[in-house]
Nucleic acid binder design. Structure first.
Lengths: 233, 233
DNA sequence: TTGTGTATGTGTAATTTATACACTTACCTT
DNA sequence: AAGGTAAGTGTATAAATTACACATACACAA
């Protein structure tokens, strides 16, 4: 029988980014301290311990900003991960020992998913982080800790919530075409949609409003631009 | 600037129970130590700190069993609550001081919602708990900590997930009538449903199977009994 | 035994929503 | 001026949802 002791709590952010060639996720490379170069650095989701006096949502925003310099992103909590052994794997021990005061401490993490338009956000690694990359979802390899699981769950949540919540717009630039919106839906839901029917549905969404502006510089009929106005009805 | 320190993690269980006269939630009374009887005991959701070597789901099951003696309940995580001040309220301090080693420690909690049939489960307070009650949802008063918020969120999640997941059946006795099932839907979704249309929909659910058995002892045409078979198709 | 009260159980027509499908338009390039 | 490219648009069919009313089986009381 063990006692209820203190433990560490972290947030991990699964930030999806979208541009015309697909859906990506934001990963960072663990920065290994200079001396031990035997272990190759692993990729992981941006995440870190929460501070003692900050709320969870606040922690997610702060951590994401500190690690990737992006700010003001839509972030939503989706699940807590508390397997007692989630940070006990051999592959993760070296890195933990290099960055944590109490590397053996149990860590429970709260998962957030976030959405950004690749065109509007430009992540840069923080000075103390190893690197920041947008990785095509299909190309994501083995991540540190249970981050593959967290990513999978986040993607599942995104699929479920894409339609009910108004979150697709977070992934698009402020001005977008209906073709872009449709392509996003097709990628996330993983099925082809009919153009005419899709546009019929969008016309019912009163918060998607046409702008007095068209696409320029394309070698075809320029598309109407739209924007998302959360205020509208 | 504060440091990332250790904190306490708990689980809180919002257990909904259903019988023919409505939807209820399981609350426990805080047991005040004999000496200080100045504060009236508050009601709260069953919840407690997790142990160092147990997972979250496991902790939820254990805590619920320890506090209410019920076991084998459907429990699903729905959200983590981490406001830094969620256990700092004056009304809650006396009780915390009487039961915790570190009453000032920050506590983040992971919320679970659960569903039971009032007829199949009979909660009893654990020796060290103050009392266990089923309380009609509308009659729930002020609870300890942020438990009113947690309850509200849990109920919202229940509403959302009632139809997509197969969770309505958890709230019913093993053998139930379609009228019971419909009444449950009407209470949770808070709208009246058409009997014939409802039954048409149920007939499409292959995992709801009619039994060779009818209601007895009712002073009207006895209803066909059904049961839920998760295995089926 | 007969009548009354009560909740069960059942079908169809009307409406709404979802699906399938093809050609003309506007701009860019050569 | 011609050809390439993606944008933009309507209609007919199928599927799903809604609205709605009466005969049935049991318990109880007279």
């Amino acid at each position: 029988m063990s006692l209820p002791l203190s433990l560490h709590l972290s947030v991990d952010c699964v930030v999806f980014g979208y541009d015309d060639d697909g859906l990506k996720v934001l990963l960072i490379n663990q920065k290994t301290s200079a001396k031990d170069d035997d272990n190759q650095p692993m990729s992981q989701l941006p995440g870190d311990l929460i501070l003692l006096d900050e709320g969870l949502d606040q922690a997610a925003q702060r951590v994401l900003h500190e690690l990737t310099q992006i700010r003001g992103v839509f972030l939503k909590q989706f699940m807590a991960f508390g397997d007692p052994n989630r940070v006990k794997d051999l592959k993760d021990r070296a890195w933990l020992q290099s960055v944590r005061n109490l590397p053996d401490q149990r860590v429970v993490t709260v998962g957030y998913y976030g959405l950004v338009s690749l065109q509007d956000f430009d992540p840069r690694p923080a000075s103390f982080a190893g690197g920041v990359n947008w990785v095509e979802l299909a190309d994501v390899g083995a991540l540190a800790f249970d981050h593959n699981l967290i990513l999978a769950q986040a993607f599942g949540t995104l699929k479920e919530q894409l339609e009910s919540q108004h979150i697709s717009f977070e992934l698009l630039p402020k001005k977008f075409t209906l073709t872009q919106l449709q392509a996003l839906y097709e990628i996330v839901l993983d099925k082809k949609l009919d153009k005419r029917n899709f546009r019929k549905n969008v016309k019912k969404m009163t918060h998607v409003v046409p702008l007095d502006e068209k696409q320029t510089g394309v070698m075809h009929k320029p598309a109407q631009l739209f924007s998302y106005e959360p205020g509208k009805s």
